[in-house]
Design a binder for these strands. Structure first.
Lengths: 150, 150
DNA sequence: CCATTAGTGGATAATTAAGTCCAGTTATCC
DNA sequence: GGATAACTGGACTTAATTATCCACTAATGG
């Protein structure tokens, strides 16, 4: 549904949004987000090329968000590393299908719903929400700071 | 988003729903749906094991729908061959997260939206809808009968 | 019962996604 | 400017998905 790569990217971005005081290295991000460091390096490259994060080399370098978390949506991150693909033309390549048939119209509609849903949440919101809601504990993403989660 | 295998399964099911007069062989289905025959055989096996279709061997054999198309949803088909996976627990395996964090709550919610959307359409509806709607031609799934598509 | 038709199951190959490694480049600090 | 820190890019491995092939079994009709 949502690829492993996109999941990793989201964790990394959320972490960066939560740690804006200084650039975070691939190693640091990898540890907190439980993503294989070597692979995360690739994912971060991808985020960097897409302009979502800024990479700084050398001592005290690392990654920082390229825009404020309030202007960065979950969809932005997903699209940067592993785009949701809308169905724009008949997957069977049938000539007669100028518009989508009912089947593919519905499948595309499902993708659209996901797009819409993910576009509605900013990264900032994800970090603002935790605490208690109606008595239920909503854990902070990555858990790092809420309590001693494993 | 939706796997190739699920797409293939849907095409096959739609075709079976449209051809209920006689069992359809893997070869026949493969040709109309433009699915590689060898692979389709596997997909059909999967649908058969899930109980969505009935397999008949021997001469005049082939596959038939195991239930009426009006009682078969798009979701049923997808779940049979390549299930959408809801996020029920923290993907990082964090102990402290009894409930999902805001990030994964949203991702799971997106999956739920897809489930809901796909559950709302029956296979019968897909075949009933084609024709003209507000002057726009809605092609029949697989196109086979509407006109000489490709 | 025999020939033919058609699904079944297993083994295997090709492609893509995920993950690993390492040498190379850039930046910082002393 | 040399040592060190950290991203970059490329080559490579592993795992999962997609796809192919073939021998086997079951059903039909004559």
């Amino acid at each position: 549904m949502i690829s492993q790569t996109a999941e990793y990217a989201l964790r990394a971005i959320v972490y960066l949004a939560d740690q804006q005081t200084a650039p975070q290295t691939t190693q640091q991000i990898a540890e907190v987000t439980h993503v294989p460091a070597g692979y995360l390096a690739k994912v971060m490259q991808s985020l960097s090329r897409s302009g979502l994060v800024h990479a700084q080399r050398g001592l005290h370098g690392g990654f920082t968000l390229a825009r404020p978390a309030t202007e960065l949506t979950v969809l932005d991150v997903v699209q940067a590393v592993d785009p949701l693909r809308r169905i724009t033309s008949c997957p069977l390549g049938l000539k007669g299908h100028m518009s989508l048939c009912p089947l593919h119209r519905r499948l595309d509609n499902a993708v659209a719903l996901v797009e819409d849903a993910l576009r509605k949440s900013t990264i900032a919101e994800l970090l603002a929400e935790p605490g208690k809601r109606k008595g239920v504990v909503i854990p902070k993403p990555l858990c790092s700071a809420v309590e001693e989660c494993d």
